[in-house]
Amino acid sequence: MRDRRGKIRVLSLLLFFWSLLFSLPLTAFEWPLAEQRLLMSFGQNKWGGFLKAVALQGESGEIYPVEEGEILFVRRESGLPDKHGLGAGLGTMVVMQHQRGIRSLYGNIDSLQNPGKLNFRREDVLALMKPESDSTEGYLYLQIIDSEVDRYINPLLSLPSLDDRRAPVIRSVFLVDESGRTYSPETGSVLNQGSYKLLIETYDPSSATENGTAMAPFSIKVYLNGVEMHGLSFESIVIKEGQSLVIGAREYAYQNLYRGLDEYSFEPLVLRNGEAELELVVSDFSGNETVEVYQLQVRR
C-alpha cells in the first residue's frame, strides 16, 4: 500500500511539473519589491471569489516591474469622486504589457514614479508603495494575466522562491453523509458505506504578520487508500461560462469549493465496506507540508 502510494505521489509530482512546463509562461520574473512577505495568496477566498493575485507586504519604497515591458493601463486615485470611472477597488494601479502576451497588474500603489514614461526595463522604478496608515509598510497587489490563454496565473509560479518555514495548519476535518449528518473522522471511527462530502478547514499562516494571518495553501490533496481522490492546486484561474475555476490537476469552481473563509469542500468521497485510510496533504508554495492520516472502519 505504502509503495503504491509513494509511486502515485512521485507520478503526481512529475505530472505537476509537466503541466507547469506546458501550461504556464516559461519566464522567470523578478520580485517587484526589494523585500517582501506573502500577505494574501493566489486563490484564497477574498471579496466573494478567488483572489486572482497575490498581496506582498514590504517596506514602503520602490516597485519594479517583474520584467521589462510597456505601460498598458493606468488608474489614478485622485481622492475625488469619479463619475465616469469604475471605482477604486485596487486604488491607484498600473498594468504592464510584457512579451508573449503576459500582463502584470500592480494595485494599491501610491504613485507612478515616472509619469509619462512608457517603456520600463526591469531595473527602472515603476511606482512607489503606498504605506498603510500608522506604518512604514504597505502591501502590493500583484496580478499576472496570460492573455494568450486567457487566464490569471499564480505569480509565485514565475517568481524566485520565497523563504517561508511555516507549514499549513489543518484546523478541522469533517465528513458529511448524504443525509447531512456530520462526522469527525478519528482513527478508529466507524462509518457507514456511502458517499460523503469532505470539509477541511485549513490555512497557510502568512509570514507577513506575527499571528500568521490565514492564507490559502497552495495545494490540498486527498488520498483514499493511497489513491488521489481530490487534488486542488492554485496554479491558475480561468473563467468558463461565467464561473471562476481554479485550474491545476483538476478544475474547481469557487461556489463548490469554498464553504467558508478557510473551509474547503471536496465531494464525492465514496467509502466502501472495510478498512479505509484517509490521508490529507496540505502544502504551501515553498513546499512546507502538513499531513493527517485517519484509519476508518466502514460498514455496510
Partner: peptide, 17 residues
C-alpha cells in the same frame, strides 16, 4: 463598488474581473 449609468447600477468586483 457601484457605478451607475442610465438607471442601471453596475457593481464591479474589487479586482475588476
Amino acid at each position: 463598488i457601484p457605478y451607475v449609468k442610465r438607471e442601471t447600477y453596475f457593481i464591479v468586483s474589487y479586482d475588476f474581473s
